[in-house]
Design a protein around this nucleic acid. Structure first.
Lengths: 164, 164
DNA sequence: GATGCGATGTTACAGTGTATCAGTACCAGA
DNA sequence: TCTGGTACTGATACACTGTAACATCGCATC
C-alpha cells in the first residue's frame, strides 16, 4: 500500500501528510481560497511520499474505482498548490514535492535530492542568499525568482554505506 | 537570417560562436575526442544564440536543403557537449546554452535568465559556493552536482526601462 | 577482407505540459 | 425565481521533450 523500500526515515515522511493537509486547510481559510477535493487529494498524494511525484503518477494514483482524474486536472491543482507555497516543483526532475516547512512563499529554498534513495529534503540558508544577492547585484541583475537544487547523497544513505 | 529583435548586446553574442568552436576543437584534440560535423553544427547553433535553444529548435535549424537532422541526433550531440562542459542545460527551460567561459567542468555556475529579453548569462561566485558547501555539510548532505538558476531582469533590460 | 567500435540515421514510443471547449456548482443581484 | 458571472472540473486534442531499439556507415586494427 505504501512503498517503503527505499532507505529513508528522517521523520519527514508519511506523518506529515496530515500536517500538510491541516496547514493547507488553514492557509486556504485565511486567504479565502477553495480547498476543493481535487486539490486536497493531489496534496495528499504528494505529501504522502518523500520522493517527488510526476503529474501523471499523481493522476494514476487518484484514478481507479470509477474515478478518473486526468493529468490536466492534476496540473491545475498543482498550479494552485505551488502558487500558494504548499507544493514545490523540482525542475531537475519535472516532479513535485509537498512543502515540508512553513516558510512563507518558498523563496530561498535549497532542495537536497538524494541519488540513492530518491528522497528530497529542503533547507534554507540566509548566508547563501546573502552571497547570492551580492553576486547578482555585482552582475547588475535584478532577481525575481530562483531555483537551487543539489543532487548527492543524504545523511541517512551515507550512514548506511559500508565505506563512506 | 539572425534574429536580433530582442534587446541584448552585452558582447557575449554572435562573436563567441567562433570562439566556442575554437575552444571545442582544442578541447577535443586534447582529450582525443571526435569533434564531428554534427557536434560542430549543434554547438555552432547553440553558440550563435544568446537565448537558450530547445533540442527541436536546433534540429529544425540544422535541417533543410536536403539535410534532415532528427532530434535524437541532436540529443546525442548535446549529451556529448554537456559532458565535456561545452554546453549547459537550463533545467528550468528544458533548453541549452553554449558555455561562455572556460571554467573547467562547469561546476559552481550561476545562470542568470532575463525574463524580458530571454538572454542567459553565466557567473560564478566562490562565496556562494562556500556558503552552500557549509549549509550542505550542516545538513549532512554530500553533494555531487547542483543547479542554480535565477530569473529576473538583466542589466541591459533594466537600463532600457523608463522607471526602474 | 574480417572484425570491432563509435557515431549517425531512422522509427517508434514514453513522458511532460498546454490549449480549448464544455459542463457544473455556487453566489450575487435583478 | 431567474439570470448572469465566476471559479472549478472534465474531456479531448495536441505540442513539446526525451529515450529505446535497431540498422547503417566510416574507420581503425588485425
Amino acid at each position: 500500500m505504501h512503498d517503503h523500500s527505499a532507505v529513508h526515515d528522517h521523520g519527514a515522511c508519511c506523518g506529515n501528510a496530515t500536517d500538510a493537509l491541516a496547514r493547507a486547510e488553514r492557509l486556504c481559510a485565511e486567504r479565502d481560497l477553495q480547498f476543493t477535493r481535487l486539490r486536497r487529494d493531489v496534496l495528499e498524494a504528494v505529501a504522502s511520499e518523500a520522493k517527488p511525484l510526476g503529474a501523471y503518477d499523481i493522476a494514476e494514483r487518484l484514478s481507479g474505482q470509477g474515478r478518473r482524474v486526468a493529468a490536466v486536472s492534476v496540473y491545475r491543482a498543482l498550479d494552485f498548490l505551488t502558487e500558494n507555497g504548499l507544493v514545490h516543483r523540482i525542475a531537475s526532475r519535472n516532479a513535485f514535492v509537498s512543502c515540508g516547512h512553513q516558510h512563507g512563499d518558498g523563496a530561498g529554498l535549497v532542495f537536497l535530492i538524494c541519488r540513492t534513495c530518491g528522497s528530497i529534503d529542503e533547507t534554507t540558508s540566509p548566508e547563501v542568499d546573502d552571497q547570492l544577492d551580492r553576486a547578482l547585484a555585482k552582475a547588475g541583475f535584478k532577481p525575481s525568482s530562483r531555483i537551487l537544487e543539489v543532487e548527492g547523497e543524504c545523511g541517512a544513505c551515507l550512514g548506511h554505506e559500508p565505506n563512506p
